[in-house]
Amino acid sequence: MVTTDEKGPLTAKKKSVIIRSCDGDEFLVSESAAVLSTSLKKILEEKEDRLIHLSDIDNKTLAMVIAYLSTHADDGLSDDLKRSFDQEFVSGKEFDVLKYLVLATDTLQVTCLCYTVAKKMADIMKNKLVEWVRREFDIQNDYTPEAEAEIRRLDAWAWDDRQLEDD
């Protein structure tokens, strides 16, 4: 009970890992940045591998995620700076790019970035027409024209008469 391991955690040495995208590009990432992704952390705990191949993330998306991870792993940056980095990070990005990002962050389990990207996508979707949303999400309209008209027709005040008195 009294004796403790004198060596302490393995944080003293700055280790790095290599992450390979589906199109073969490799990125050297510090371990402290990589473990911010829950998926990568699990892989690193399970295996001694220093090369992680991500078969489903392309190099452009991976580069973005790694830039995010490296910034957030930097102890020298204040939380305020990291927050403004997050805002900057998603601003001006096209919807399509954000789609790949949100998928990648979901796969890699980078919760904060997934949240930020999802929120940004929702912001872009605001005030957009149904047709725009269908096109961007590649969704087929499965409503019959009658069904769609019916929902729109119901777009009027509905009285819930559970509590209505006799009038």
Binding site: S39, D49, R50, L51, I52, L54, S55, D56, Y100, T107
Partner: peptide
């Protein structure tokens, strides 16, 4: 890099990416 011979594939494979 040592021990890199076995690349790790994440479970979810989204080929359509």
């Amino acid at each position: 890099v040592k021990g890199q011979t076995c690349p790790f594939y994440l479970r979810r494979c989204i080929r359509r990416m």
